[in-house]
């Protein structure tokens, strides 16, 4: 696969239909979106608007019915065609941050982060070194040997962000990453995501309902009834 880092994600006319015939439901009716490297955009919309479906399509978890998606210069989907190894694509090119951190409970913090490069075939030493650097950058290096159950909610979410970043993916998908956190910690998470996006030239899409963090986005995609429209955000600067 060609090197995609620094080239962002782009989707055009993305459609997704569940079911067939009379029972068919069009969850996405032609979504367009583009996120540049180093940019953090918000994706907001009411329940049932198609947010999760869009996120799953972006995450190469489900296949769209129609449309085009490119990651850097690589075409991932195009009118029914898809890249052959979506699992490797998710491992190497897409980072995920979830509402709950979903860390692997039986691995310590370092190995939770180092697992992805190890899965990609990198030597354990190199994978752990990369994990330690990220944990340092995210200010959780002092908990490197701790188990996930010994971490606070904010620390767990930072470790989850480190895990999403460890393979240096060109895009990170964050699904309600601040939902379980208080205002201060929520804003801290967004600040970290912005900082990491800039540092690693990563495009970040944050799906959220969280009113506290919506003003921080410079661009926001609203999704309603399976269609998106873009608007400028406040882009409030975080200290």
């Amino acid at each position: 696969m060609a090197e995609l880092q620094g080239q962002g994600i782009r989707i055009e006319g993305l459609k997704k239909r569940y079911g067939e015939g009379d029972t068919a439901v069009d969850a996405l009716k032609g979504v367009d979106m583009q996120v540049a490297p180093g940019e953090v955009v918000g994706l907001i919309g009411p329940s049932g608007s198609g947010k999760s479906t869009l996120l799953k399509c972006l995450g190469a978890v489900i296949e769209p019915t129609a449309g085009r998606m490119t990651l850097g210069s690589d075409v991932i989907y195009e009118e029914g065609w898809k890249i052959s190894d979506l699992r490797a694509l998710r491992r190497d090119k897409i980072g995920f941050v979830f509402q709950a951190p979903y860390l692997i409970p039986f691995l310590d913090v370092t190995d939770n982060v180092a697992l992805l490069p190890m899965l990609a075939g990198r030597p354990n030493g190199e994978a752990r070194q990369r994990a330690r650097e990220l944990l340092e950058a995210l200010d959780v290096a002092h908990r490197a040997r701790a188990m996930p159950s010994q971490l606070s909610g904010g620390e767990q979410q930072r470790v989850a962000i480190a895990r999403a970043l460890v393979n240096r993916p060109p895009v990170i998908l964050a699904d309600e990453p601040t939902a379980p956190l208080d205002s201060e910690r929520a804003l801290t998470v967004i600040r970290i995501l912005e900082q990491m996006a800039r540092q690693y030239e990563t495009a970040v899409i944050v799906v959220t309902h969280d009113e506290k963090i919506i003003p921080t986005f410079r661009r926001i995609y609203h999704i309603r009834d399976g269609r998106t429209h873009e608007e400028a955000g406040e882009g409030r600067v975080l200290q």
Binding site: G59, Y102, I104, L119
Partner: peptide
């Protein structure tokens, strides 16, 4: 849930 996460992040 952990298995789903492992599969999502690309575990074979």
């Amino acid at each position: 849930r952990e298995i789903a996460v492992l599969k999502l992040i690309g575990t074979r």
